[in-house]
Amino acid sequence: SNGLSATQNQVLSLIRSCPDAQGIHIHDLKQKLSGMSIAVIKQAVEFLCNEGHVFSTIDEEHFRSTDN
């Protein structure tokens, strides 16, 4: 266990899998996590930002992982 919830791990793994320099858009996360609400996704992203796992890129809606 890495201390993250199942939801947080799902979101992190999707952010990690995006090869683009500007990262993945929050709406693309929503599309790929079809059962998850945007509020839940945003909450997970915020947590991951606070923990330094991810960061925003060209604006506050695109995210990249620190470990790729």
């Binding site: 320099a21 500007q22 930002c49 923990e51 330094g52 890129t57 060209i58 990249r64």
Partner: peptide, 30 residues
């Protein structure tokens, strides 16, 4: 499309800040 120099600068700045935050969190857990 490709990123502007300003966008690249911003991304790198945010990445460094996040890496520092990650290191801080890991240190707190020890």
């Amino acid at each position: 499309g490709s990123l502007t120099a300003e966008q690249q600068r911003r991304i790198e700045e945010n990445r460094q800040r996040a890496l520092a935050r990650r290191a801080e969190r890991l240190a707190q857990q020890e």
